[in-house]
Amino acid sequence: MTRRMWTYAGLAAGLVLVAFPFGWTLLASFKPESEIRRDPPTFLPDQWTFANYAGLFERTQMDQAFFNSTVVALAAVAGNLLFCSMVGYAFAKLPFRGRNVLFGLVLVQLMVPAIVVMIPQFVLIASFGLVNTFLGIILPTIVTPLGIFLMRQFIADIPDELVHAARVDGAREFRIFFQIVLPLCKPALATLGLITFFTSWNGFIWPAVVAQSEDMYTLPVALAIFSNAQATQYGLLIAGAVVVVLPILVIFLFLQRYFVQGTTFTGLK
């Protein structure tokens, strides 16, 4: 019992350390600009205000940016969930010629600094007429190396016998994939879905380069308009950071139960 108490105490202490910057930021977003930078600082706002949020929505097309970010992130999630698990399945369970070379290419894509390919990629997007479109923002990352890596690793742990049994029964690979493998992958898919969502949601440089009109801006791109070197407006920036983080928090809460489903998976071993 005492050991358990210690575990709780340790976890709680860790949580305080981890969450403190968030709590502080959230509270700061309700302070007026002058109070944010007061010395000595206040923890709770002396004077609660929604001015930062009001300013945020007044200054930028926040609702539009929110919508755009959602579309882009959901499309990226859908693409990655389907495609990464397909590719991962092939790498894990289907021996084929050229597999090692292909897996090498997956790793190459993972290891290349993104800035190197940005301008050539933009030239390609432009030549396809996809500048300033959702497709242009999404396509290059519709299937990502991390996702393939993650799914391959996870599917490799699914017992071969399950797949074989289905093959002996004459099931087609696509049926095996959709009806046997995918349902077993829920925990991995939840992880991948969340990671893809937030990567896309937080993505900055690529959407900023491809989106050429304000009605195509995603949240981070819209927020970047007023964070310039000369006069950074902290209140707006902090409120913006909160608006960016909140949806991710909600989605994570919603996906919690899938994270716990690792247990159902264990039953198969």
Binding site: V123, A208, V209, S213, A224, S227
Partner: peptide, 25 residues
């Protein structure tokens, strides 16, 4: 006149890319 505001942080990259892709305003 249709104005698109950009952040300073990304402006240089964005304009260079637009020139490369012949997709300038």
């Amino acid at each position: 006149v249709k104005v698109t505001p950009l952040g300073w942080d990304v402006a240089h990259d964005k304009i260079t890319a637009a020139i490369a892709g012949n997709a300038t305003p």
